[in-house]
């Protein structure tokens, strides 16, 4: 997890790891609280699009910390990271294609 090498004692390694765990926990908790406050206090007139983009960004931040630190993927070989993360890129296209389709269906319902 954190920076440690063979020269460190087990006690020091444990300390370094605990520091990372506590840091990631604090970040995850803080981001959840920020999301909650945004949902609670976003003013009526403000753009929901901006809010949704904010939520999306914060979600990927949380997901990144969970995958890279808790699931330890950030410390695996490049190959393993690639094999796990690359296929997920296909989901981006699935989102784009299907959301456009959904809007077209609504449009067809309302206008024909």
């Amino acid at each position: 997890m954190a920076h440690f090498d063979a020269s460190m004692t087990p006690e020091e390694i444990k300390k370094a790891k605990m520091k990372t765990v506590m840091k990631v926990t604090a970040i995850l908790a803080a981001v959840t609280i920020v999301e909650f406050i945004f949902a609670f206090a976003w003013p009526d007139g403000s753009s929901r699009t901006i809010l949704n983009i904010l939520f999306l960004g914060l979600t990927f931040l949380k997901a990144g910390y969970i995958i890279m630190e808790f699931m330890h993927l950030g410390h695996e070989t490049f190959l393993l990271k690639f094999v796990i993360l690359f296929p997920l890129l296909f989901l981006v296209w699935l989102c784009v294609a299907l959301f456009v389709e959904g809007q077209a269906i609504l449009d067809a319902f309302l206008n024909w």
Binding site: L91, L94, C95, L98, F99, E101, G102, Q103, I105, L106, F109, L110
Partner: peptide, 12 residues
């Protein structure tokens, strides 16, 4: 979750 998104786009 994407299916949820599609259906949400299909409703006003």
């Amino acid at each position: 979750l994407i299916a949820y998104g599609v259906v949400r786009y299909m409703h006003p």
